[in-house]
Amino acid sequence: MKIDISGTRSEIVSIMTGVLYPFIIVFAVYIILNGHNTPGGGFQGGAILATLFLARFIVLPENDLDVHWSHNLEKMLFAVILLVPGVFVFAGLQYHFAALREPYLIFMNIVIGLKVAFGLTIVVFRFGFYEGR
């Protein structure tokens, strides 16, 4: 599915969004990976990562996202979010392996960031292509 954008296409917006792409990715990865040391974290970084797809939607409204695939991936990531703290925090493994506390925080921030990014991307694509027109 493709929205007709002939006549509304802007060369300036296209080029500027292409320039912004790498900065968005670097900023999102920075926010996610440094979430345990500086303000930020998985939710914030995931939202920034989702703006990447929002920017792509503005430049090239082409519905080539497989919603079922990304939705299943999001469910799997949520299972990881349930299982890893279940073993590490709730079962008390963190008291025996103190060295794993910081890697645990980084891992959880990455998983939460990916999950939020996939979820918000699905929302953006759904509302962009099926609602509001």
């Binding site: 979430g35 345990h36 974290g41 979010i81 703290p85």
Partner: peptide
Amino acid sequence: DTGARNAVAAIYLNYRMYDTVFEAL
């Protein structure tokens, strides 16, 4: 307790993990 230098991350990933799980849910 958590190895985090950001108190917010320490709370939402360790002390109050239930909050994060249900937020993701």
